[in-house]
Simulated assay, not measured.
Amino acid sequence: MGLSSFFKNLFGSTKESVTELATNAENTFEQAKEAATPYIEKAEAFAEETIEKVKEVSEPIIDQAADYAEKAKDTVSEYADKAAKVVNDVVDSVKEKTASIGVSEAPETIAETVFDESEKSVTEVEEIADEAADKA
């Protein structure tokens, strides 16, 4: 019987110790939570203030970027038109020279390829400028 009472005492005191530790842990957690609340509120306020400051500082930069993108769009469009004219002149010249040789399909293929690529460039620049303007 001495052995069974030993185990009862051992496990009984362990159960009490675990219960006491759980209660202490819960109390400590509540205290830590209460102590951290002001710091969490301060961190939230700081984050909000920082976000507002970043917005204020970045707004003129975004506006400038939108203006620059619009200017770039205009410039590229102007040069794309000029490049298309030059390419068309080159294609016409190639057509004239190859017509005398007897090759008729090559100039059309060249003209289509060059024209398609210049159109893509203008479209891409316009899309980029529009995206920049939308972000502003």
Results as ranks from 00 to 15, higher is better:
residue 1 M to F: 13
residue 3 L to M: 15
residue 4 S to R: 13
residue 4 S to M: 14
residue 4 S to N: 15
residue 5 S to G: 00
residue 5 S to H: 11
residue 5 S to N: 12
residue 5 S to M: 09
residue 9 N to C: 08
residue 10 L to M: 13
residue 11 F to D: 00
residue 12 G to H: 00
residue 13 S to W: 04
residue 15 K to A: 13
residue 16 E to H: 08
residue 17 S to Q: 14
residue 17 S to F: 12
residue 18 V to S: 03
residue 18 V to G: 02
residue 20 E to W: 00
residue 21 L to A: 10
residue 21 L to F: 08
residue 21 L to E: 06
residue 23 T to G: 02
residue 24 N to L: 08
residue 25 A to S: 11
residue 27 N to F: 01
residue 29 F to C: 09
residue 31 Q to Y: 07
residue 33 K to G: 01
residue 33 K to E: 08
residue 34 E to Y: 03
residue 35 A to S: 06
residue 40 I to Q: 06
residue 43 A to Y: 02
residue 43 A to L: 09
residue 45 A to I: 05
residue 45 A to W: 00
residue 46 F to T: 15
residue 47 A to E: 09
residue 48 E to A: 11
residue 48 E to D: 09
residue 49 E to D: 09
residue 50 T to S: 05
residue 50 T to F: 05
residue 50 T to D: 01
residue 50 T to Y: 01
residue 52 E to D: 13
residue 54 V to H: 05
residue 54 V to F: 03
residue 55 K to I: 02
residue 55 K to D: 15
residue 55 K to H: 10
residue 56 E to M: 01
residue 57 V to R: 06
residue 59 E to Y: 02
residue 59 E to L: 02
residue 60 P to T: 00
residue 60 P to S: 07
residue 61 I to V: 08
residue 62 I to V: 12
residue 62 I to M: 10
residue 64 Q to I: 05
residue 66 A to K: 03
residue 66 A to S: 02
residue 68 Y to R: 12
residue 69 A to Y: 00
residue 70 E to D: 11
residue 71 K to H: 09
residue 72 A to T: 01
residue 73 K to Y: 02
residue 73 K to C: 03
residue 75 T to Q: 09
residue 77 S to C: 06
residue 78 E to K: 05
residue 82 K to F: 06
residue 82 K to R: 11
residue 83 A to S: 04
residue 85 K to H: 08
residue 85 K to W: 07
residue 87 V to C: 07
residue 87 V to G: 00
residue 88 N to P: 00
residue 96 E to P: 01
residue 96 E to Y: 11
residue 96 E to H: 10
residue 97 K to R: 13
residue 100 S to T: 13
residue 101 I to V: 15
residue 102 G to A: 04
residue 104 S to W: 03
residue 104 S to M: 11
residue 107 P to D: 04
residue 110 I to D: 01
residue 111 A to E: 13
residue 114 V to G: 13
residue 115 F to W: 08
residue 115 F to H: 14
residue 118 S to T: 15
residue 118 S to N: 14
residue 120 K to W: 10
residue 120 K to G: 02
residue 121 S to P: 07
residue 122 V to N: 07
residue 123 T to I: 11
residue 123 T to F: 12
residue 125 V to N: 02
residue 128 I to P: 01
residue 131 E to V: 12
residue 135 K to F: 13
residue 135 K to W: 11
